[in-house]
Design a protein around this nucleic acid. Structure first.
Length: 920
RNA sequence: GGGCGCGUAGCUCAGUGGUAGAGCACUACGUUGACAUCGUAGGGGUCACAGGUUCGAACCCUGUCGCGCCCACCA
């Protein structure tokens, strides 16, 4: 076996992954004999989705937790799957169909269209699975779930029956009175022609206009309208006015106005309360009502009320008995001709208005035109304001009055709040708990019906009289309504209603499956903050409502991956970094390690490819350490061993202790979800300790027959530990090395996670190594400062060594000579023209006369001395402060004292060296 | 309007009371048999600003400035 110079990630990753899969490494139950279980539910990506950075990050963290627990012997399940993503998928498939020149969804009909969606799913729904595999995600793919599995029309091969669980929950919640049907104002998406929930609305700031309209006062009423103002905007002159002025950004809604609101204390209008205005065009007499909602500061202080097309107006309307009058159809066009609500009041002929059937924006123009012509347009102001948009369709949504199904969230929210408040479920970082509480404590009813086709059809049937029957099947519904002719509600459920059941649904509920018993409640949910409301809160509410248990004990909310400049990655900005391209270029391990190292809790991470390159080099570094070992016969006859060897050489004892330390560090970091600490700790250990020092120290030891064998054993063990500890973060390169470097009973993915710790530390060895490393660093530093040619070996004179220093030197002479590039030591007085370096309990003089520029060195020493003196001054000041000595913890005081003593000794040596240099 | 977070080296960021850290970038030297995807050494920071608490503050409190995000807001 001869190892290649580097790890060829591009070639090896697919092979390694295939081996894991073929060996059933990801299967739940692989550790079935163990009592502890560990389960993570993947946040199911949209079946339309492809892997973006957010997924890559999110799934890397999950995979780390999963691999870590698997190696620790937990019976581990990482449940994968995809979400059917109602609107998103319907949109994608419609677009695809249009591209292929097919008939539209409507022409095609529901059944045929759904067939097409399933076809599409079969064809390209697995894309993201392949991409997750490239990342190294060790999900149990044999259990892959889908939120629409088992739905009518699902192809035979589709495993699972998520549909039944969803329907069953709907029926249960309905029967408990937690789901109801109601005619309410909803966010209507005119593009998809469906209701959407509050959460699916996003506010976008847009330039627009504010139109001021005049509504004539009835009963001969007037008010004093200001016509002149002073510099501060206070009115200086008023004139009696026989109309009210209302301002609106949507003038077309005026046809549905059924009131005008003013503030009860507004002196301008107080006398008008209870009087009426006559709505232009329609002639409807509508009341002036007093309501705190009307803000005297805004607009004209009088605000038109359109309860059927505005959420605030709806509330005001309820308080004052203002009737909602719908003036738009589902397509957001005017419909007046057949609108009985509207016709009841209309006193103008529809033809004269010429509004019927107009799109809302056309209608807006027409209304403004009419207002101008008829003299009730008071003015137009430019206005920039927020306009609600459908988050998928990107069109302005229209509040619209329809019959919809709602979850009465107020009834099921309590346990979800309590679970977090009482710590049964923890949200990390904690700051997110506040947001969670705030949302849940102010929760609104959840509109769950969607006028779409792709989704779980609502299990409700209507009879001829409009009575409804909720049941799991049509037969059951029919049994509830004997002899009546039933039609099923055509609407489907909000996608999030089904994904809200992801934890129990994927585990086979309502059957009490072994998986459900074993893995539920699951352990940790790893997710981004953007779906805390959409998904996390709903899972909490729904699991608690249905099975009365929290779905997970921890929610780890990870930060957002942004681009190098800190901008959110988005297609429209064109700043999207494709994780697959990064994987192609640097390998999955490098991408994973980068994200892990940057995953500090609660802070967004800015990703740059340069950083990824750096961590790719880290993998190479480990690879080369193993390669060095191979060249030195370290792996010959090596077999996995759990316990560390018991070597005699200081260096070997030292590195074993360091390994124990890093293992504890990694475990503590992962247990606290401090992924970055785990990654950075390992990086510092592998590169900074093992490669920089241990491998270098090992070179002379391997050459010496007295220490070669134990050094080979130690190095093999230490490198094994590096592979094991790094495996959760860098699974591919470590697995490859594992296979190349010894007799292995099982793959690294199954290797036993170590449980040694600080007890491996050997204080004597550590002290000695600290001394040796300190000395070498001092000498190197001095050599570099003095520009001693790197190839030139120098002698060194030990000056006044104490016994410990002499012993440390004697025990490590070969190491020191080699790494400090010295050619031998004598003891005695420092010669003239020598530079002195100080380490604990010893000082060494390096004769430099004739070798280098002594004047420059003098300068350096003086600088060091000055800096040292400054630091020492601070320390002396602190120690001479009685309050510090009295109130600081003892160990801090002791530490300060030691630091001062060491510093003073060093300063003395520097002074000595300076004196000698001056003499020379 | 309400809430949350951030401001530390040129850049990206760690660091939750005890003399400021990493990676990258930069400078100098170096191909010494694991690694140039490398090694050694070095320069570089009044921790946004102002107050306060404390023996001691990057860290805790108050305020100011700057940046980001979430929620609400279609008069």
């Amino acid at each position: 076996m001869a190892m290649d110079k580097t790890f060829d990630a591009g070639r090896a990753e697919a092979r390694i992954y295939a081996e894991w899969e073929a060996g059933g490494a990801f299967r739940a139950g692989a550790n079935a004999s163990r009592p502890e279980t560990f389960c993570i539910m993947i946040p199911p990506p949209n079946v339309t989705g492809s892997l973006h950075m957010g997924h890559a990050f999110n799934n890397t963290l999950q995979d780390i937790l999963i691999r870590w627990h698997r190696m620790r012997g937990f019976d581990t399940l990482w449940q994968p799957g995809q979400d059917h993503a109602g609107i998103a998928t319907q949109m994608v498939v419609e677009r695809e169909l249009a591209k292929a020149g097919n008939r539209s969804r409507r022409e095609m009909g529901r059944e045929k269209f759904l067939e097409k969606v399933w076809e599409w799913k079969a064809q390209s729904g697995g894309t993201i699975i392949g991409q997750l595999k490239r990342l190294g995600a060790s999900c149990d793919w044999s259990r892959n779930a889908f939120t629409m599995s088992g739905a009518p029309g699902a192809p035979a091969g589709e495993q699972g029956n998520f549909h039944d669980a969803v329907i069953r929950v709907f029926v249960e919640l309905y029967n408990k009175g937690c789901i109801y049907r109601g005619k309410r104002l909803v966010n209507w998406d005119p593009h998809f022609e469906t209701a959407i929930s509050d959460l699916e609305v996003e506010q976008i700031e847009q330039d627009g206009h504010m139109w001021r309209l005049r509504y004539p006062l009835a009963e001969g009423a007037t008010w004093d309208r200001p016509v002149e103002w002073d510099d501060e905007g206070n009115p200086t002159r008023t004139e009696p006015c026989d109309y009210l002025v209302v301002a609106t950004t949507r003038p077309e809604t005026m046809l549905g106005d059924t009131g005008v609101a003013v503030h009860p204390d507004d002196p301008r209008y107080r006398h008008l309360i209870g009087k009426h205005v006559v709505l232009p065009l329609v002639g409807r007499r509508i009341p002036v009502v007093a309501d705190d909602y009307a803000d005297p500061e805004k607009g004209t202080g009088a605000v038109k009320m359109t309860p059927a097309h505005d959420f605030n107006d709806w509330k005001v309307g309820e308080r004052h008995g203002l009737r909602p009058v719908n003036v738009m159809t589902t397509r957001a066009a005017m419909f007046l001709k057949d609108n009985s609500d509207f016709l009841a009041d209309a006193q103008v002929s529809q033809e004269a208005l010429a509004l019927d059937g107009l799109d809302r924006y056309e209608a807006r123009k027409r209304i403004v035109e009419l207002a101008g012509e008829q003299g009730w347009l008071d003015g137009i102001d430019a206005d920039r304001h927020m306009v609600p948009h459908g988050d998928r369709s990107k069109v302005a949504i229209e509040p619209y009055l329809t019959d919809q199904w709602f979850v009465d969230t107020a009834k099921i929210v309590g346990p979800a709040i309590d679970a977090v408040r009482e710590g049964r479920t923890k949200i990390l970082p904690e700051q997110h708990e506040k947001v969670y509480f705030h949302w849940l404590e102010n929760i609104e009813p959840w509109c769950i019906s969607r006028q779409l086709w792709w989704g779980h059809q609502i299990p409700v049937w209507y009879d001829e009289d409009g009575n409804h029957y909720c049941a799991a099947t049509e037969a059951e519904a029919q049994a509830m309504a004997p002899g009546r002719s039933l039609t099923r509600d055509p609407d489907v459920l909000d996608t999030w209603f089904s994904s809200g059941l992801w934890p129990i649904g994927t585990l086979g509920w309502p059957e009490n499956t072994p998986e459900l018993q074993k893995y539920f409640p699951t352990d940790v949910l790893v997710t981004g903050f953007d779906i805390i409301f959409f998904w996390v809160a709903r899972m909490m509410m729904m699991q608690l409502a249905v099975v009365e248990r929290e779905p997970f004990h921890t929610v780890y909310v990870h930060p957002l991956v942004r681009d190098e400049k800190g901008k959110k990655m988005s297609k429209s900005l064109g700043n999207v970094i494709d994780p697959l391209e990064l994987i192609d270029e640097y390998g999955a391990d490098a991408v994973r390690f980068t994200m892990t190292a940057m995953a500090a809790m609660g802070r967004d991470l800015k990703l740059s490819s340069q950083r990824v390159a750096g961590y790719r080099n880290f993998g190479t570094k480990l690879w080369n350490a193993a390669r060095f070992a191979e060249m030195n016969g370290v792996w010959e006859g090596h077999a996995t061993r759990a316990a560390p060897p018991a070597p005699e050489a200081t260096v070997n004892r030292w590195i074993i202790g360091e390994t124990g330390r890093v293992r504890e560090e990694v475990d503590a970091a992962l247990a606290a979800y401090r992924f970055n600490d785990a990654a950075n700790g390992l990086y510092a250990f592998v590169w900074g300790k093992v490669c920089d020092w241990y491998v270098e120290f090992a070179k002379p030891l391997l050459a010496d027959p007295a220490t070669a064998a134990e050094t080979r054993a130690t190095m093999a063990w230490v490198l094994d530990q590096c592979m094991i500890l790094l495996h959760p973060i860098m699974p591919f390169v470590t697995e490859e090395l594992w296979g190349l470097t010894g007799q292995r009973a099982k793959g690294l993915i199954h290797a036993d996670w170590p449980d040694y710790g600080a007890e491996l530390a050997d204080p004597g060895a550590e002290r000695e190594m600290r001394w040796v490393i300190g000395l070498i660093e001092e000498i190197r530093s001095a050599r570099a400062q003095m520009r001693v040619p790197a190839g030139l070996k120098l002698p060194v004179v030990g000056v006044a060594l104490d016994a410990a220093a002499r012993a440390a030197w004697a025990g490590n002479e070969a190491l020191i000579l080699r790494l400090a590039r010295l050619d031998g030591m004598t003891e005695g007085a420092a010669p003239k023209g020598a530079m002195t370096v100080a380490v604990e309990g010893a000082s060494f003089a390096i004769p430099l006369e004739g070798v280098v520029d002594l004047a420059a060195e003098t300068e350096r020493l003086e600088r060091s001395l000055a800096k040292l003196e400054k630091d020492l001054g601070g320390l002396r000041g602190r120690l001479s402060n009685p309050k510090f000595v009295a109130s600081a913890p003892e160990e801090i005081v002791a530490e300060t004292r030691e630091t001062l003593e060491r510093g003073e000794a060093e300063a003395a040596k520097l002074r000595g060296a300076l004196a000698r240099l001056a003499a020379g």
